[in-house]
Every structure is written in C-alpha cells, then in structure tokens.
C-alpha cells in the first residue's frame, strides 16, 4: 500500500527546461493523463527522503524518475559548491535505492547519467563483453593538444566543448581525443530505449542492422535503459567500432524518432 499523498505527481522528470526529449516525455505523459513534473535536481532533493535502518530502506516519494543531465538548479551563493555536492549525493543515493523505475538509474559500479559521459565507454570496456564484430575505438587523454590532431575530435574534458582536429578549442585545457564522427566518415547511430532501438543516423549503411543489434546488447551490458550508441563504419570491412556511448542522448533531432522514443520511455517508466 502506498503512503504517498495523492497530490504528488505520477512521474518526476529531472531535466533542464530546454531538453527536447524531456519535453517530449512530458507531452506524451499529458496525452495519457499521467501527471509528470519537470524539476531540477535541487528541487527534487527538497522533496526526497531516504531512510536506512535495521528494518530496511524507505525512499519517498515512491514515484518513477527520468533523469537527464542538466544544471542542478542550486542557487548561486558562497556555499553553492558544497550544496551542489550534497544535492548530488542525496539524489544519487535516493535514485539508487528507489523501488520504482529510474532511467538511467545511477549505479554503484557502472554507467550513470549523473557521471560524465566519458565514463560509459570505460565501464563497457571493463565489462569485456562486446558483441561479435564490434570493437572499441581508441581514445587519448592529454594535458593539451601538441600540434595537429587530424582525424580526431578534440574535446575539452572540463567543458565538453569539442572540435574536429582541435583547431577551434577556445583555450589550452586537458583534452580527450576520440576518433572523429562527422560527415567525413561513415557512421551509424542507434538510439536505445529499454529493448527497443531506432537507427538515428546512417540508416543506409550496410551494417546498420548489425549496429542495431549491437547497440541493444551494449545498452544491456552497460545497464542503460536510455542511450545513443554511435559506430564508426569502414568501407570494405564487416565490423564496427564503437565510437560513442552517450547515456544522455540529445542529438537525434528527427521528430518521428523523438515521439516514438518518448512514448517508449513513458512505457518503461510507468511499468513499475
């Protein structure tokens, strides 16, 4: 028996106001009469209570949650940094222990939407169980780009600002170099929601079918209910390289996929 007051929403969506996927989920929820509330991590932390004891764990509110990467909403002030860490830890604890569906649920060991996206690929590598005909693209971490970086996408690992070849980065800062995924190269992107998949880019590639199966398997290995997996495809080869695993996909702007993904997400969230 639930002890949640009736005035609580049916679903929490932790996201920024401009997040198009979150907006699509809110729209789908409204269409089904599901009361969904968009809020920041800070706002959610204010209503969240976690009790741990000899008699077990209790997390309130007992409602499913969709978590998207966003500014946490902590008001500016002299203690904002500390409050932000406290809010992050409180929400991570609550969402890890919540008995309802959380997409993507923060994990003790593994990928989390609350972590930098870079972590995803490394836990995947650590899991060691990649699908057949799929390899992981190499990556480099440097204090700065020494000379040119042709063929690489150079990402500032502090701001996530990225540019092809490193030519447009605004300052010298620690860099992450990944194989480029751009119009210059063949690639296939697959959106994963639970066990459902959609090819969001490169649908004409002969390996798109393999990519779709592999993306579903990678989502399962990485314990991600929502992800976009991008593969680099090479002419004349029948294997794919995983170039990106994004636990917070935003780039699949195609409207048909957006609405289908939002409906699928809502199915997942409200199943618990």
């Amino acid at each position: 028996m639930s002890t949640v007051p009736a005035s609580l929403p049916d679903l929490y969506v932790l996201a920024g106001g401009t997040d198009t996927l979150a907006r699509a989920v809110l729209g789908a929820a409204e269409g089904r009469g599901v009361r969904a509330l968009l809020c920041s991590r800070f706002e959610y932390a204010r209503v969240l209570t976690v009790e741990v004891g000899l008699s077990g764990v209790r997390v309130m509110p007992d409602r499913p949650v969709l978590v998207r990467q966003h500014a946490d909403g902590v008001p500016p002030g002299p203690d904002a940094g500390f409050i932000s860490e406290e809010v992050y830890a409180h929400v991570k604890g609550g969402l890890s222990l919540l008995g309802r569906t959380v997409v993507n649920r923060p994990r003790i060991r593994g990928v989390s939407v609350l972590q930098p996206p870079a972590i995803a690929q490394y836990h995947l590598r650590a899991a060691g169980g990649l699908p057949d005909r799929v390899t992981l693209a190499p990556e480099l971490f440097r204090d700065r780009v020494h000379g040119g970086a042709s063929g690489w996408e150079v990402q500032d690992i502090y701001t996530y600002e990225a540019s092809l070849g490193g030519g447009n980065t605004s300052r010298e800062a620690p860099q992450r170099l990944r194989r480029s995924v751009s119009r210059l190269f063949r690639y296939v992107s697959v959106l994963v929601v639970g066990t459902r998949t959609w090819v969001s880019a490169g649908a004409g590639d002969p390996l798109a079918g393999i990519a779709r199966e592999a993306a579903a398997e990678i989502g399962s290995i990485a314990d991600l209910q929502l992800a976009e997996v991008t593969f680099k495809s090479t002419e004349g080869e029948d294997s794919l390289q995983v170039a990106r695993v994004d636990a917070n996909p935003r780039s699949f702007a195609a409207a048909p996929i957006m609405s289908q993904a939002a409906e699928a997400l809502l199915d997942l969230l409200m199943a618990s």
């Binding site: 976690v50 741990v52 000899l54 764990v57 830890a89 409180h90 991570k92 604890g93 609550g94 890890s96 222990l97 003790i108 060991r109 490394y122 836990h123 650590a126």
Partner: peptide, 18 residues
C-alpha cells in the same frame, strides 16, 4: 577507480554496508 562507488553518497553507502 572502478570499485563500488557508494562512499560518496551516505544513504547508499549505509544501505550497502547493511
């Protein structure tokens, strides 16, 4: 670095210890 990461979220940490 990929050990169980729960010490930084006290409620989760205590639940795991239990």
């Amino acid at each position: 670095p990929d050990i169980d990461q729960h010490n930084g979220a006290k409620s989760l940490h205590e639940s795991e210890l239990a």
